[in-house]
Amino acid sequence: MTQELIPPHSRRGSKYAARTVPVSETGERLTTSAMIASLDAEGRATVAAPFGHALVDLAKFRDDIVGLTADLSKYTDLHVFAKAYPEKFYQMGMAEQVMISAAAGLAREGFTPFATTYAVFASRRAYDFICMAIAEENLPVKIVCALPGLTTGYGPSHQATEDLAIMRGMPNLTVIDPCDAIDIDQATRAIADHPGPVYMRLLRGAVPKVLDAYDYRFEIGKARLLRDGGDVLFVSSGFMTMRALDAAENLAQEGISCAVLHSPTIKPLDATTITAEAAKGGRLVVTAENHSITGGLGEAVAGALMRAGVHTPFRQIALPDEFLDAGALPTLHDQYGLSVAAVTASVKSWLAA
């Protein structure tokens, strides 16, 4: 096999350094699509568009539910709602600030708006509009955003690796990072009843179903212990809870016992449950998140432990504080330490140190 040099972006060394792509003997590039919005669900059942279908179910009984999107209904699963309730759907075009302002206006008139876009556009482009038009007034707007963290290979323009850090600093805003289709379905219904504004990350398309095996029930502001163990305590959110559960199975085969505490609410954090579990002692506490190591779940948990006076060995599994490469998701998850194999290896190395 030969290697072909191509010049686009690389985050190794110089920003514009050449990188290599494997090619076959016939010269064909051995690459996969960079844009993979649905996670690999090999061996797992999946649910199609759980957010869109949950919103449709809510609208059957609630006239106040409306949906808005910034030209991304298909890619945030809001097209399911738009098809069922076209009279309650608003296509705002590529104008996130306008969408947020319109959602605020609808909320003032008694509606419960669900506004969807990509996480990068809500957290970076529309931040001031969310802050001034929605959060300061504590309006019940639900901002639901696809492509959180490293769930696309399109590079920094689409990878919202810092959205949790941005949003958890905003007063009045509840921040949710659900794990799977079960979590998304239940969280959508819960945030519809929540009286204030919410920012929720979204896995879309064919979303794996995991938490139904753990007698799980989503509740805003609550972490749930999915499995117990005596050597390691994972505190995780988003799809990294799936990875923590899989890594725990791998580690169990080597005699390492792992607990997994799923914390889908980043703000308000369930500091009571987290500190109580960490305080049991004798376990390495490992936070696992699909977000930058800066300002997300890991630092929120570390702060909670310090304030509670809980001192325990602590490590973070998270994305680096840098702009990430573009590429295929399985490769990037290995590269940046989010794959099951990488999580397993990291925990073993920390225990051996």
Rank of each mutant, 00 (worst) to 15 (best):
residue 162 E to P: 00
residue 212 D to C: 11
residue 201 R to E: 13
residue 249 E to H: 05
residue 9 H to T: 09
residue 102 A to T: 09
residue 221 G to S: 07
residue 183 D to F: 01
residue 157 S to F: 12
residue 2 T to D: 12
residue 269 L to W: 08
residue 255 G to K: 06
residue 98 V to A: 14
residue 351 L to M: 13
residue 353 A to F: 03
residue 245 L to S: 04
residue 71 D to N: 15
residue 236 S to M: 06
residue 100 I to P: 00
residue 152 T to C: 15
residue 352 A to F: 15
residue 112 T to V: 13
residue 325 D to T: 08
residue 106 L to H: 03
residue 331 T to S: 10
residue 204 R to I: 10
residue 202 L to V: 04
residue 264 P to M: 07
residue 16 Y to L: 10
residue 7 P to L: 07
residue 69 T to L: 04
residue 196 G to W: 07
residue 319 L to P: 02
residue 208 P to C: 14
residue 162 E to K: 01
residue 210 V to D: 00
residue 186 Q to P: 01
residue 92 M to T: 12
residue 224 R to N: 12
residue 321 D to M: 08
residue 192 A to V: 15
residue 289 E to R: 05
residue 29 R to E: 13
residue 205 G to Q: 09
residue 148 P to V: 04
residue 257 S to E: 06
residue 187 A to L: 08
residue 67 G to I: 01
residue 179 C to E: 00
residue 224 R to Q: 04
residue 169 G to W: 05
residue 292 S to L: 03
residue 302 A to N: 08
residue 308 A to D: 04
residue 151 T to H: 03
residue 264 P to R: 06
residue 81 F to E: 01
residue 25 E to G: 06
residue 23 V to E: 03
residue 206 A to M: 14
residue 87 E to C: 06
residue 301 V to E: 04
residue 217 R to T: 11
residue 93 G to E: 11
residue 195 P to L: 11
residue 257 S to F: 09
residue 321 D to Q: 11
residue 48 A to C: 09
residue 129 F to I: 11
residue 248 A to P: 00
residue 262 H to N: 07
residue 299 E to G: 06
residue 241 T to F: 01
residue 290 N to P: 11
residue 333 H to N: 12
residue 217 R to E: 10
residue 42 E to P: 15
residue 204 R to C: 03
residue 36 I to G: 02
residue 124 R to M: 10
residue 235 V to Q: 09
residue 198 V to D: 08
residue 104 A to E: 05
residue 17 A to R: 11
residue 126 A to D: 05
residue 173 L to A: 09
residue 115 A to K: 01
residue 183 D to M: 03
residue 77 D to H: 09
residue 140 P to N: 07
residue 111 F to A: 15
residue 124 R to A: 06
residue 69 T to I: 02
residue 59 A to Y: 00
residue 159 Q to D: 08
residue 134 I to K: 01
residue 294 T to A: 02
